[in-house]
Each structure stands twice: as structure tokens, then as C-alpha cells.
Nucleic acid binder design. Sequence first.
DNA 1: GTCTATAGTATGATAGAC
DNA 2: GTCTATCATACTATAGAC
Lengths: 203, 203
Amino acid sequence: MSAASTPEPAGLSRRDELLAIAGGLFAERGFKNTTVRDIADAAGILSGSLYHHFDSKESMVDELLDTFQTELWKQYDAIEASDLTARGKLEAVVRASFEAIGEHRNEVAIFQSDALYLATFERFGYLIERNRKFRTLWTGLLEAGVASGELRADLDIALVYRFLRDTVWVAVRWYRPGGTLTPADVADQYLTILLQGIEKESR
Amino acid sequence: MSAASTPEPAGLSRRDELLAIAGGLFAERGFKNTTVRDIADAAGILSGSLYHHFDSKESMVDELLDTFQTELWKQYDAIEASDLTARGKLEAVVRASFEAIGEHRNEVAIFQSDALYLATFERFGYLIERNRKFRTLWTGLLEAGVASGELRADLDIALVYRFLRDTVWVAVRWYRPGGTLTPADVADQYLTILLQGIEKESR
DNA sequence: GTCTATAGTATGATAGAC
DNA sequence: GTCTATCATACTATAGAC
């Protein structure tokens, strides 16, 4: 119970530190494009030393993605189980996703650019499954919104889903925390565009 | 003038054929992730034989991207020079971009996933320049649309630009020609969402 | 926890025969 | 235009000393 000989006395263990460094590089230049030497260099050690902490390069990205997705789904599940209306849930889910971009940029970026490639290995099969679950959740909310009359009925749901999904996650490519826009600001503007459009006088 | 001994008697030269094969692989699994052996295998030859047609793997992707961008910009320039209103130009540019996704999926996909990496080499410096030109064009149209009263004035232009840019180009990830939706159909739906939103009763 | 040293493999590219 | 053969390099990963 005391801080006697725990591995993380102050905060980040060396292992977590290395994982964060790897995450930054994977996000910036891609998984395949980042060598174990790059990671070791950035950490100020030699590449062989990395293997004292991790089995393989794949293990690193696996741990990053899995941890992140587990956390994100806790939030999605809570929203889904809430008593908000369909539209309210949709907004909440969009906001939670932008928050995730703010707090876990690296993981989101890695998922965006490397998930398709990684999913070809059975080890990363969970990525495909989570993706399906994600589509089910979002599409379901859109359908419920149309059914409840909150959303217009003349649009192709599958297409709106892809539009929505892409607009949210692709923001990781340009969003940088610490600027003038908080994730909540971006979510507000995106939701305004998505819900009301950019046209001046409409309908 | 006759078809006597021209290199492309029927249509695609062997070189173009190989370039198309490489483009498909680059688009599908990424530039770095595609080896020259992969390309040669897909073409039914050995990797060394590729170098009879091309200097390097980089030359291949360079030729694909440069050719495509030159063609696309011919269209953008024509739209910019037309006498459409700002909003009309914006719609035309969006439609032209979706057409490009329909006709040059590989090149768009490669640009989307590898341009950032490729741009780190001076050889691909033109990618950065074209990107800037692109932003200038689209942002200018948005500003003109606000000025003319066609578009609402309460949104952050830089953010709307990124929203628009990303939603258009990211569609290459899922759009497949030959399905029920033509590029024009997708452009229609996207423009409807973008201009009017998905909310039932708004404003 | 990091280093030295290195194995084993994959990769981009070249030279010359056919 | 393709093949055979191969080089030089870069990569992931391992074994054992410190």
C-alpha cells in the first residue's frame, strides 16, 4: 500500500514512457514507417534495450490501441445506456469522440492510418469487431433520430453515417491541443454544420 | 501518324499497365508497405524487370501523383475562372472532386495516406505547394460565399474549410465505383448535408 | 535497465545474359 | 522486355555481459 518499491512511484513507469514515445512516432509517421531504432533513438537508448520492455513492435501498438479503445467504449456504453433522446445521444457521442481526439491524439491517429493494415493480422482482429460495433451504435442512433422525427428522413443513412464518422475522426489530422479551440469548441461547430448546414437561409 | 510501330498500339503500354498495378497496390496497402517485389508479383514478372521501365519505386508514385494533380487542377482552374457565384463554384469544385474520386481512386487514396510522408522528400515538394493552392482556392470560395450572403457568417471559416476538405477526400476510403451510388449521387448528398444539415426543422 | 554484438531476413536497386 | 544473380543496406529480434 505504501510507495515503497512500487514500479511507478511518481507517475509514468519507464515502460509507459517508452510506450508514449512510440505512440508519438507511430502517429506522426505511421507504424510501418517507424523503426524500432527510431523509437530507441527518441528515448535515448539502443534498439535492443526496447525488448527488455516489450516483446515486439507489434506489442507496442497493440497495447496502445487496445487500452485506448477499451476506455473509449466505456464512455460510449454509458451514453448508449443513458436516457437522452436519440439526437442527444448522437451529440454526446460526437462530443466524446472529439474529447478522445484531444486526450488520445496519438492513438486515434494510429487507428486512422494503420488499423486497416494491422487488421490483416489475426492479433488485431479486435479492431474489426470494434469497428462493427461502432457502426452499429452510430447507425442505430441515426435511425432512431429519424424515427423520432428529430432528424430528416430523406437522406441515405449509410451515407450519413460514413460522413459523420469520417468528419469526426479525420479531425485528428489537424487538431492540436493548446490552441484557441478546445475539443468542445470543435464539436460545437461540427455539430452545428452537421445539423443545420452552412447555407444562410435554408428550408 | 499511322499506328505502325508506336509504343501504344491498342491502349495501355506495358509501362502504363505496370504503373496502374503499382497504383492499385500503393492505394490498398500504402506506399511504404508495398515492396517492388509485390508490384512485380502482381504483374507476373520479377522485381528486377521493373527497373527497365522505372528508375525507382519513388518514380512510380511520383508519376502517378503528378499526372493526377495536373489533371485535377485543369478542372479547378476552369471552375475558378467561370462566372458562377461563389456558392456555385463551391458546389462545382465539390462535384469535380467526387468525380476525381470516381475516376482516380488510387491516386486520391495514395495522396490521402502517403502525401505527408512523401512530402518530406524534396522531390515531392510540389505536393506541399499544391496543398497550399488548394486551401487558398477553397477558403477563398467560402469567404466569397459569406460576403455575398450565400453562406452563413457565424462559422469559423478555417474550420469549415477543413471540415469540407476532409469530408470530400476521405470518401475515397469507402467509395467503390460500380455500386448504386455514382460520384454525382454522393456529391449531391454531401452537398445537401453540408449546406442544409441533417436536422429536421432548423432555423 | 541498458549495452555490445550479431543473427536472420526483407528490401531497393544494379549488371549483364537472353 | 524479362530473367538470373547478386550487392548493399536496413530491419526486427535475440543472447549474454555489465
